[in-house]
């Protein structure tokens, strides 16, 4: 049997312990708890409204010349003007097509490649070093090459979006495979499943929410790249619109372009969230 534990002396005294300290309750600062929905909505509305109000105040105060900071009303007018003239719909359409093309291509490769890399350590060892290196090369640095190879048409712009999102998509899809419990794969083997079935019928459905989320997050990068490609050389597109506006000192149109890009980005984000909710009901918190 074990020896009795000897306690050499009393534990050291804590000086001036004072009244017991307790954590005070808080709604706003609570950690890892849900906010009351009402408060949540109010805060989210403030998040948009506050910068807007601030902008309106600064613009109307005369502190900044309206040449540099147009008022919200001027920007709304600019958006309306560009929309009616037909320029804005064309810009939106061409930017969107480039993004969709490049991103769809990147996703079509990233999903199978990332899943294979996440599933098989062999494929990971084979692919991760090269993907890891190329990922660190800024996609925009490929622009000169893309222009040299493919000229100034649509192809280099689509390829820029493709190059810039492929590797991030691949690595993030790969990472989502990590979270599948090993026992779930083993249970499938003991049910008679082979590796191919595990890949297609267990791993793929399990990481589907991760794939959708990856697309949602990397869509922002795709916007970045398409705008850059249009700033360099394009005849239409939202990036082109902004660079032309700069040349003619039309700050209101620059703002209009930025706001449209933000609005479209937010819409796409929400669409992906809805897709997640609809397609992967099991993974969404009820």
């Amino acid at each position: 049997m074990s020896d009795p534990v000897l306690i050499p002396h009393d534990p050291p005294l804590v000086r001036n312990p004072g009244p017991a300290r307790m954590l005070r309750p808080s709604v706003f600062w609570q950690i890892a708890e849900d906010l009351p929905p009402r408060l949540s909505w109010i805060l989210m509305a403030l998040s948009i409204a506050l910068p807007l109000v601030l902008w309106a105040i600064v613009a109307s105060s005369g502190l900044v010349k309206s040449l540099f900071l147009p008022s919200p009303a001027q920007v709304v007018t600019a958006i309306h003007r560009l929309w009616v003239s037909g320029a804005l719909p064309v810009d939106i359409q061409s930017s969107l097509l480039r993004i969709m093309g490049g991103f769809a291509l990147a996703t079509a490769i990233a999903i199978p490649l990332g899943t294979l890399m996440g599933t098989f350590a062999s494929i990971r060892s084979l692919m991760e070093p090269i993907v890891g290196i190329v990922r660190y090369m800024p996609a925009t640095a490929f622009i000169p090459l893309l222009i040299l190879y493919f000229g100034l048409g649509e192809l280099p712009k689509i390829l820029l979006v493709f190059v810039g999102t492929l590797f991030f998509n691949t690595l993030m899809v790969m990472d989502s495979v990590k979270f599948i419990p090993k026992e779930m794969i083993e249970a499938t083997y003991t049910l008679g499943g082979n590796r191919w079935q595990v890949l297609l019928q267990v791993i793929l459905p399990y990481i589907m929410p991760g794939i959708i989320d990856t697309c949602r997050v990397n869509m922002a990068a795709a916007w970045n790249l398409v705008i850059v490609s249009e700033l360099v050389a394009a005849t239409e597109g939202l990036g082109r619109r902004i660079s032309v506006a700069q040349r003619f000192l039309k700050t209101d149109e620059i703002f209009a372009g930025l706001i449209i890009i933000g609005a479209i980005g937010l819409t796409i984000d929400i669409l992906f969230r809805l897709l997640l909710r609809y397609a992967c009901r099991w993974s969404v918190k009820a």
Binding site: E183, M184, P205
Partner: peptide, 8 residues
């Protein structure tokens, strides 16, 4: 021992 049901 752990729950290995397919959550979807």
């Amino acid at each position: 021992q752990s729950y290995t049901l397919y959550p979807w």
